[in-house]
């Protein structure tokens, strides 16, 4: 166990990961987190109700291969399966919205979301629009049921915040996985003599290929293809935001600005490539922009000093300055 701790400390130090114990102990953070969680369930209820509109035009698709959570759909007609799933989704999320304060309510909401997610992914290909909602719903099941208590122990409050932080960290991890994938492929493609991420027209290639594959147009597509640099600079910015997203989980001062940057990323991919992942946006606002760990009034200086790479540079400069003096 001591070796595990030593290794983790070494990894934390090298990666510049912070100490979450420091920011999960604050009472105000706990009160804020408690008030934020219900909005996750309110929003997913809203989504479920909108999905009921599909009932108007449920028709047999070309491909329907039920994923394992809806294995039972193989034994009923498509219309029946679709109706059951969408109606169950709406009632399950209603239960979650009303009973979010206890494990059972949150579990039922998760079940409804799981059925809906499986349904969406059963038409011949995956649908990742709802992946993050599903995993976050699973994580939130493990929140302690302490809303009803007038006074909770610091241990329970800390546990609550750790689970909440887990949802934040998971969201940011997925963005980092995307960013790291881009970096790895950039290296591979560079050494294979192919077009790669750091070429000035890489964004233009992406935009063209996507629009051509989808036979679509976009608001900024033509502009980016004709002037590749206009797409390249935002692309590099997004790469930085994505690669270091997971580190931001440990730096509460950056939660809000990273949420904003990621929302801009989603807007940018829509304006540039007509590719939308807008259902991630409410998650970014609920868990990051409204982060209970972000102290109101955090100074710009603090935020800049916490920026990934910038913080390393500042540490080095500081240590050199100290050595010299």
């Amino acid at each position: 166990m001591n070796r595990i701790r030593a290794v983790s400390k070494l990894i934390n130090g090298r990666l510049g990961l912070g100490d979450i114990d420091r920011f999960v102990q604050k009472d105000k953070a706990y009160e804020r987190a408690k008030s934020i969680v219900p909005f996750f369930y309110y929003f997913i209820l809203f989504v479920a109700l909108l999905q009921l509109l599909q009932l108007r035009h449920l028709s047999e698709p070309l491909i329907f291969a039920p994923r394992w959570p809806i294995f039972w759909a193989d034994y009923v007609s498509f219309q029946s399966a679709g109706t059951i799933i969408l109606v169950f989704f709406s009632f399950a999320t209603l239960a979650g919205a009303y009973f979010y304060r206890n494990h059972f309510g949150r579990f039922v909401a998760f079940l409804g979301l799981l059925q809906f997610h499986a349904f969406q992914g059963s038409f011949g290909g995956p649908n990742h629009q709802w992946d993050l909602w599903l995993w976050v719903a699973l994580i939130l099941i493990f929140l302690p049921d302490i809303w009803g208590k007038t006074k909770q122990s610091s241990r329970e409050g800390k546990k609550f915040l750790i689970v909440f932080w887990g949802a934040q960290a998971f969201l940011l991890l997925t963005y980092s996985m995307s960013g790291i994938g881009k970096l790895l492929h950039a290296a591979l493609q560079y050494f294979q003599g192919e077009a790669h991420l750091f070429m000035f027209n890489s964004a233009a290639f992406h935009v063209y290929s996507w629009l051509n594959a989808m036979q679509a147009t976009s608001l900024l597509g033509q502009l980016i293809i004709e002037h590749p640099l206009l797409g390249w600079f935002p692309f590099m910015f997004i790469l930085y935001v994505q690669v270091f997203a997971f580190l931001v989980a440990f730096r509460p001062s950056l939660h809000r600005v990273w949420a904003l940057a990621l929302v801009l990323f989603h807007m940018g991919t829509y304006f540039g490539m007509n590719a939308e992942f807008f259902y991630q946006v409410p998650l970014l606002f609920i868990f990051l922009f409204a982060s209970p760990f972000h102290e109101p009034g955090t100074s710009w200086r603090k935020m800049i000093s916490d920026l990934p790479l910038v913080s390393c540079l500042l540490r080095r400069l500081h240590s050199k300055h100290v050595t010299v003096t």
Partner: peptide, 21 residues
């Protein structure tokens, strides 16, 4: 793909300079 588990490798590979269609 493995259902529920994803690498999030979206737009990771830059399309080639010369393409066929």
């Amino acid at each position: 793909e493995v259902y529920l588990l994803y690498s999030w490798d979206l737009y990771t590979k830059v399309p080639p300079r010369i393409q066929t269609e």
